[in-house]
Design a protein around this nucleic acid. Sequence first.
DNA 1: AGCAAAGTTCAATCTAAATTGAACTTTGCG
DNA 2: CGCAAAGTTCAATTTAGATTGAACTTTGCT
Lengths: 167, 167
Amino acid sequence: MPDLLSGDPHELDPLERQVLAVFVDGVRVLGLPRSIGEIYGLLFISPSALALDDLVLRLRISKGSASQGLRLLKNLGAVREADGGEDRRTYYEPAIELKRLVGGFIREQIRPHLDSGKTKIDLLAKSARSVHDPVRRQFLSERVERLDNWMSSGAKVLPFLQKLLGQ
Amino acid sequence: MPDLLSGDPHELDPLERQVLAVFVDGVRVLGLPRSIGEIYGLLFISPSALALDDLVLRLRISKGSASQGLRLLKNLGAVREADGGEDRRTYYEPAIELKRLVGGFIREQIRPHLDSGKTKIDLLAKSARSVHDPVRRQFLSERVERLDNWMSSGAKVLPFLQKLLGQ
DNA sequence: AGCAAAGTTCAATCTAAATTGAACTTTGCG
DNA sequence: CGCAAAGTTCAATTTAGATTGAACTTTGCT
């Protein structure tokens, strides 16, 4: 006799779908792929920690995706291994303190770009200084300096952001 | 007799290429396409305003791309039409005040997402309240409330961001 | 008005990045 | 140890979204 409500015990219920949609949207704004939003979203709305297989089954994504997604989320500090667990699987639970999420994102996704940007701009400044035409050199130097100021402002603002979002 | 230095008078010089690379990278972090970085970057490093055709010629992008890119940049307040100009073309120049760039980005790219997120979360809260199992309802309500708090924090932080980056 | 240059639109195409899945490595139980 | 379950890796595939280009509209000069 078939299940009265849904053909698959792993199927997500409507509320879970709604939550996933919010997170899929959220991570897209941050430039992260859909699967990341789905994984974090499901962990976020699940009352108990989940193993990789649970994600594969319930989200219908591949083991590869789940594995890579969990790694990224661990690196961001957005997910941690739950201690305990009966079997030998690793169970994951979401970090739900905004402070931690923001901190991880800044550390992993923002800072590296700021740093490599700073390097490129330093090189640019050098190139600009060695331009022969003095009018052009002057103009370029001004623009490069402005670029440099933007970077500094960005770097200065991050600690404030963290403080403001720290709980 | 061929040109001694480069086959094409429109070709970008190495310094211009470096600048474009910085902007292409920069806009990618913000989730915007490469062409946007190229267009803004070229305007940023050009001593005079440029017309759509200049962008097409120098960046070797299509008229369509240039037109759409300029529209987006105008909407962001990152580019404005230069007044004057000899012919009937429209010439564009970059907005170079960080305040303006940040403001436009927040208004066009961040706020809409925060707003639609808020809406979705309100719906979620409703769904959560109508869950029958009291244990599950309690859990869901807590999580949804947390989500709501995140949104509020995000909304509250934007004015500070603007203030900190203003000037 | 008539015309050509300027600019816009959007379906078709291309491309970069996400996802898959099968082969592989690791883990730890019996 | 030997084995199966768990997890990882990465080349191949798929997909989302950026770009193109040709048809179209708009603009303003003579």
